[in-house]
Design a protein around this nucleic acid. Structure first.
Lengths: 338, 338
DNA sequence: AACCTGTGCTAAATCGATTTTTCAAATGAA
DNA sequence: TTCATTTGAAAAATCGATTTAGCACAGGTT
């Protein structure tokens, strides 16, 4: 009941192991194996249900056919969807994926990368968190195949793919402004990430484009590492001290969900009392009455593009490197809240 | 800049490769390596940053130190949390996890198991879906280490761990009945899974225990493979044709979410018009006003217990097998909806 | 002196594949 | 006929570890 090995197949087919290997790897012609013999080998391999021993192949070829996917939180819906698509796409190409989540812990990011290194993944797909810059730079230095998603470090020259944050916010803002709203707040976190800055830029630019004054007091920066309750309170204070606001733009879905809670506590009606738009969709936003309008991320597109970029790096016979920075458009989804 | 091998370390330390291997694997004493030599080897290995080549180790030892986790849907919150805890626990024990999701596709389940087999996972953690019975039986026949979670097949003798479904429903029902409600509906799916049956049994028993008649028309079985809209309609028809209902118990969170949508459409108020309890928590239930009361699954407990059971099987020197069937208590969480 | 017995380590086999090298037989050229 | 080539496949090296078998030497016995 033991595993069938290449040698066994060779014996069954009455040839040498190397011959079997050549045929099964499509190098039969090249190695001048007679079609007749090749056919016999194929048949034997087929009906004996032979499967090559992954580890042996890996050891010999130096390729693990495994990709490392590092995301912030595996239970977040954005990352979960991303992971799903990536897994599917990778499988299509004969790769598996091992996931790891940093759980927003910068330190853990480094460990993870090292851990994956030990495991010999052939390439990395990473949604970078603030503290991971050094480790990522190291990977680049070692010429490891690598693609960043969702964010990137301007200082590191590596391919990345993400939503066009600037344009996404613009879409949402245009809708709000188009409805005649002008007193629009913008809520963001204080982590210094490029995508957050881009979203802020989108907000500011949209206002300026429509000759609406940008008021600093309408921009709320919440601290990231903070008790949930504290954030709720700060958000509520913000809304109460700016009662004239007629719309609010949440720059992440995490913030949007906090927002919903505060809005419910304060008994505000959407969109009459306050119109709401949030960046990045979430299950809750579909269901929560009256439905929260969002900028939807092109998650599938991001995943597929990222895999493409990574595969391109993995191909030994790679031509000139593809475009490094890819921004995919987001999609504004209108629901009841705005 | 090449990878450091065992041989390199041996050369650096001035000993044979085997000696290095013994020392690094803690078999120095057993193999009578002098402490002095052992110390030197340790030091060299340490400061050279040597990491054994995983694939080589795997090939030689036959152990991949990898577990296969097969869940229904990686983006579901129950499964995502489960995956997270399992990953953490596995890592603590020196194992990695490769995930796969069947996405509720019975056929895919079989393929996945085979795929993992090819990859040589040392053991399986599976949340079984209806169509996977045959494949799981095969794994058992091949004596593969295996633990089922969340559900199980009565016909297959293998360890499993899940919430006590019967008791969980009882807790929720007791609360409803305690509030004086008697006309309680029960919504379930028609897939033939043991946990669904147990939940139904809990519903029926709770009613009987309190001498409340069990009416068949209060039990709704929705078909699983169905358009979302169709299910919504059927659910709405059900509620409209039983206007006297004062409470409803959803047997899964998927159903509960559908329920929320219907209840919102019909303009019903929770809990005045209809009290709602749902089995299995979800982010939405915390946030959706007035908060949905749920039976919370002991996800961490399930994950940890499952890993324990699996590790026990993986230990060659296993004593008598631990208890096979483990049921962990769920927890009723009271929110505004009931 | 010849014979065991530990001690402390090294040499070699092994895991299961891929890949390079080798080699006999068939064919072709001179 | 003889030497060079080509054909078709087997043999052997290799990947990087683990593990079994073995070997030299010191010390103790009879």
């Amino acid at each position: 009941m033991k595993r069938l090995t290449l040698k066994d197949v060779a014996k069954l087919a009455g040839v040498a192991p190397s011959t079997v290997s050549f045929v099964l790897n499509g190098k039969g012609k090249q190695m001048r194996i007679r079609d007749e013999v090749a056919a016999r080998i194929m048949q034997v391999a087929e009906k004996s249900g032979y499967e090559p021993h992954r580890m042996a192949v890996n050891l010999r070829t130096g390729q693990s056919k495994t990709l490392g996917l590092i995301v912030e939180s595996i239970s977040g819906s954005f990352f979960a969807s991303l992971a799903k698509t990536i897994e599917t796409e990778a499988e299509r190409r004969g790769y598996n994926v091992v996931y790891c989540s940093t759980e927003n812990n910068a330190q853990k990011g480094g460990e993870l990368i090292r851990m994956l290194g030990r495991q010999m993944v052939d390439g990395y797909l990473i949604t970078p968190a603030p503290g991971m810059e050094k480790e990522i730079q190291q990977l680049v230095n070692q010429h490891k195949p690598l693609v960043l998603m969702d964010s990137y470090f301007p200082s590191i020259k590596t391919p990345y793919v993400l939503i066009n944050n600037f344009d996404g916010v613009q879409q949402g803002m245009k809708h709000l402004i188009g409805r005649g709203l002008t007193k629009i707040a913008f809520v963001m976190v204080d982590v210094k990430l490029i995508q957050i800055e881009e979203r802020l830029r989108g907000y500011v630019t949209a206002l300026k484009d429509h000759k609406i004054p940008v008021k600093k007091k309408y921009i709320l920066q919440l601290q990231y590492h903070r008790q949930r309750e504290d954030s709720l309170r700060e958000l509520q204070d913000f809304l109460e001290s700016n009662p004239e606001l007629d719309a609010i733009f949440f720059s992440t879905n995490y913030l949007g969900i906090l927002g919903l809670e505060v809005i419910a506590r304060m008994g505000l009606k959407m969109p009459e009392d306050l119109a709401v738009v949030c960046f990045d969709d979430h299950d809750i936003f579909r269901l929560y009455p009256p439905g929260i309008s969002v900028i939807e991320q092109p998650i599938e597109g991001i995943a597929k593009t990222a895999i493409d970029l990574l595969m391109h790096q993995l191909d030994k016979n790679n031509g000139p490197m593809k475009k490094q920075a890819i921004e995919l458009p987001g999609k504004f989804i209108l629901r009841g809240s705005a």
